[in-house]
Design a protein around this nucleic acid. Structure first.
Lengths: 207, 207, 207, 207
DNA sequence: AATGAATGAGCGTTCATTCAT
DNA sequence: TATGAATGAACGCTCATTCAT
């Protein structure tokens, strides 16, 4: 039904090869970092000539940005897909917030390369990438702030909350949590502890 | 008196020169990052030959580690110097915690190079440095935990607090705060907002 | 009738395709020079795959030589087709010489790619090509010398003429003229001035 | 008397090394051409590391331009140093012109690398170099034209001379002569023949 | 016959490090 | 002790050429 109609090689093939290279690059970057990874390393992982790399990516920075964007995209899609819906009880409200955090944790637990790349390798490589990282954190913070603004309106939260700062603070907590979970020997259990702690902190502080 | 005593050299002179080079290196690393900074750049800032560099530091990584250690040391000294003293009232107790945070903020505001170097350039350069960063965060977290353990004992804080996770979470908040303040146009005002927000969050959560 | 006669293929088709590729290559070489022209550039101008190129030409140097040969051939055919015929008057004789020059000018004016390729790109690519260029200039010179030898015999020209050197000198004038005309804003007018100047120089020198 | 006063290495040393490298580069370019010459080839000729090259020249094109400029400079200095002085007889006048030509011949005979580099390798490498070559030829032509203008004024030459075109034509003759002499087995004798032929052509044409 | 994906030789350039002075 | 000239390992990237389809 599809046939070999297209004149230029099937775009599927190209797309798939790009994906393969991207995957190999992620492995390499996660293991050795941006600067210590050579294009030929990536090629070697796939058993292909290193010249082939340049048929699919502009240059080394290009593929690194692609890797970062892929990771950021995954996280961002979680964040963006989870808008604060109307809730009637404080309990329901808190659950929403907790679920958002847990989903973000999940993304990083699902692919253990994400953490190292995003938290160790992405920074200091290129100003544009630094900006992209900031943008991601801002996006998470903004999404979180929506919940807080909503909560203040509904009366679930204190009226004098500095929602902007608070959202950034919570984002910082999330980042710390993800990093901690990544390096834990029993990630699942640690994730639970973080969830509970975050919930407790947000709901009633430490008192 | 001066004569040929040069064999042992004046350790002061050596120490001072090291400090000068370190300072120049900090400027360079803060401005351009680790990989984009050349040894000759550092030497040039001091008007000295770049061969001289190697009389005071082993190699490039050596001085970068020294820079990082210097920064980490400043932060750590703040943290370590501020043991939780006996307090009798919850108010006094909270003030202690807030003051710790403010002092850390101060370190980064006093020297604007610390932030960029620590948060953007220090990572992804060398595994040993990554570990050192983790260690710093751990140290801050551990110090903070002391407060929490103390608070739990004294009865100021909830008995079911997961002090370990909580301390890491608060450390994450601190990091987020420092980063935010560093990039703010009015750092002083923003610092205030962070202080209040952190205090509020810790004392009574968001409710 | 068509059937499986493909083994011998239509030589016409092959010849025509070769010509097309050659034309595209000339454009490319004239615009960007030999080293800056990629095989894929040539293919792209024809909308064909660059692998196809190798079905019609051995390699990059092969087609460049073909281009040069084509140009040289055009010039040489002019030169060779114009043998010094018997002339009875000095006037007729001079006209012959002038006409030869004008025809050569014409070849380069007709196809503006010839000049840049022959005078800027052909040299320094390959020893064999350098030799071919020399051969062309020699051929022109030799043809010209025939006129001079003829003129000496007939008594139109000085008996002590060094016809070999003179023919090379006149060839040099021609080359200079072609280059000058190529870059002139009003080629036609400039051509006229060259014709007159060459004629004057040859007939009576500068006195 | 000079001492080792200068802080940075003697500029003499640097200048000399630059000259050495330039000389080696000239050899290499003359033998193999621009594109076939590798930086490491040049370094190897001097028994030095190829990294050293970059302490003295920006890059490959830089040194090639330097080589070309050196050659052009030699030729240009000949041309510029030889202004048409006041002459009273036509004989004296013609001698001046002939001497100019002979001096140019001499430059290329003195250093046999000049010809191949200037006439074969300099073109088609870089637009800027093409322009420089044109400029050189223009300079020679302009200098020559001064003689002609002077000759016309003094009445030695025809009043209707197209001095501009004529100067370019004579420059073309010179170039052809230099090329011919370069490849001759007995350059000295051939040079003589060219001198006489050029003189004859200019004085009385071929008649 | 036509294609274009794959290849890898090849080269320019950088810069941390050494060491003779 | 200070210097900076010299070094060469290292790597990103290009593109002519091949060949399976």
């Amino acid at each position: 039904m599809q046939g070999k109609s297209s004149k230029t090689a099937q775009p599927d093939k190209t797309t798939q090869k790009r994906a393969e290279i991207l995957a190999a690059a992620m492995d390499a970057f996660a293991e050795n970092g941006y600067h210590a990874t050579k294009i030929s390393d990536i090629a070697q992982r796939l058993g292909m000539g290193h010249g082939t790399f340049y048929r699919y990516f502009e240059n080394k920075l290009d593929i690194f940005i692609s890797v970062i964007d892929l990771i950021i995209g995954k996280v961002a899609s979680i964040v963006e897909s989870d808008y604060p819906t109307a809730t009637n009880s404080a309990g329901e409200y808190h659950q929403q917030i907790i679920r958002l955090g847990e989903r973000i944790f999940e993304v990083f637990r699902e692919d253990m390369r994400f953490g190292p790349i995003l938290f160790y390798e992405a920074l200091g490589v290129d100003p544009a990438l630094n900006a992209r990282m900031e943008a991601l954190l801002d996006a998470i913070a903004q999404a979180t702030e929506l919940y807080f603004i909503n909560g203040v309106k509904k009366g679930f939260l204190r009226q004098d909350l500095d929602t902007l700062i608070l959202s950034k603070a919570i984002t910082g907590v999330l980042v710390a949590g993800v990093r901690d979970v990544m390096s834990a020997s029993d990630p699942e259990a640690v994730t639970k502890r973080w969830s509970r702690t975050i919930a407790g902190l947000m709901i009633s502080g430490m008192s």
